[in-house]
């Protein structure tokens, strides 16, 4: 047990990264469906889109609680710096998720007077995605810390860069949503999603390129990570893999494939995520606080690790079961309790 202690912060960083990655991919596609909602034609198309994610959104959103809760468990000091620093985007994101979440239920009960819940579903999803991008950008740019506490202003997070990451994440979620709809629906919804996915793919690649160019030239530690020998050799597969995945997604969309565009989009997200992690390791609050400095007591990390090792496989197992239960295309009119 004592031999494990020095590794705990690293293990916990790994667990949190998995949780955040799963959140981004899973809630990403259902937020994406919400982001694409305004472009749907008519009630039955929107019913179909919502039905394709309705059984999953709650479970997906729980990864956000694990991400936030996990940060509190494993790195309370980081939690106590990041949350006040990004106060307004975090609060607005939570409120947007409130609207998005209740829209699923309210919309069905409100029928036929449900238009307002179409609107809140779309706005809530879009605002949540954009705020998550702002949070990401704000974190990448770094926050002002004095004696282990946030010491900046209320709007430090609002910069051209964070607006770019906000737009980037929103676009990325929309891509996940579009490719999800290609996989899960048929007819006009799937066809429109396929058309939208192409444009979104181009936009996502542009956003990833912009962030990749911006961060190393603004942030020294990122430049040092990527553009020194031998790192540049070890890390060069990442951009190459991004290019190949984008190409795969493009051709899969073009040849009418139903599942591979979604898988390729997930891969793109994971690669981008991995690139950002590489840029910032070992910081949990870049570039001032490392995972070791922010770690909670080893007793706390160990106690919780025990639970994660025991329960997380179970969670992944039954999550898989639920996705399997609702596998296949969603048909019109199928669905609600």
């Amino acid at each position: 047990m004592d031999g494990l202690a020095p590794w705990l912060p690293l293990i916990w960083a790994g667990i949190l990264l998995v949780a955040v990655a799963l959140y981004v991919v899973l809630d990403g596609f259902d937020l994406g469906v919400g982001i694409l909602f305004p472009w749907a034609h008519g009630e039955s198309e929107r019913d179909l889109m919502m039905n394709s994610v309705a059984p999953f959104w709650d479970g997906n959103e729980t990864w956000l609680v694990l991400g936030g809760g996990g940060l509190l468990v494993a790195f309370p000091v980081a939690f106590s710096i990041i949350m006040p620093a990004l106060y307004l985007p975090v609060i607005v994101m939570l409120l947007a998720l409130v609207f998005r979440g209740v829209s699923f239920e309210f919309r069905w009960i409100a029928k036929p007077h449900h238009r307002v819940w179409d609107w809140t579903f779309a706005t809530g999803s879009t605002a949540a995605g954009f705020c998550q991008g702002l949070i990401l950008g704000g974190l990448l740019e770094g926050v002002r810390v004095e004696s282990n506490a946030f010491a900046g202003g209320s709007f430090d997070w609002l910069t051209p860069f964070t607006v770019l990451t906000g737009a980037g994440v929103t676009t990325g979620y929309a891509l996940l949503g579009a490719t999800w709809l290609i996989m899960k629906t048929e007819g006009s919804v799937a066809e429109r999603a396929r058309r939208q996915a192409r444009g979104l793919l181009i936009a996502v690649i542009a956003a990833m390129g912009a962030v990749s160019l911006w961060t190393p030239f603004v942030l020294e530690h990122v430049f040092a990570r990527w553009f020194t020998l031998p790192n540049i050799l070890y890390l060069s597969p990442i951009p190459i893999l991004v290019a190949l995945t984008a190409l795969w997604a493009w051709t899969a969309l073009a040849r009418g494939a139903e599942k591979s565009p979604f898988i390729a989009s997930i891969l793109l997200f994971l690669l981008g995520f991995f690139g950002l992690v590489v840029s910032n390791y070992p910081y949990v609050v870049p570039p001032v606080l490392t995972i070791r400095q922010a770690a909670s007591a080893p007793e706390s990390q160990l106690f919780m690790l025990f639970g994660v090792a025991l329960v997380l496989p179970l969670i992944l197992g039954y999550t898989f079961v639920v996705y399997r239960t609702f596998r296949g295309k969603v048909r019109p009119g199928e669905g609600y309790h």
Partner: peptide, 30 residues
């Protein structure tokens, strides 16, 4: 946080995922 954090963490792991995931089947699995 060292004390409260893990208690909330166990809530997420043992309770939130269970209820949120099976809610999908409970509502849509008739």
């Amino acid at each position: 946080g060292n004390v409260i954090g893990p208690l909330l963490g166990y809530e997420v792991l043992t309770a939130f995922f269970l209820e949120a995931t099976f809610l999908g089947i409970m509502l849509f699995g008739w």
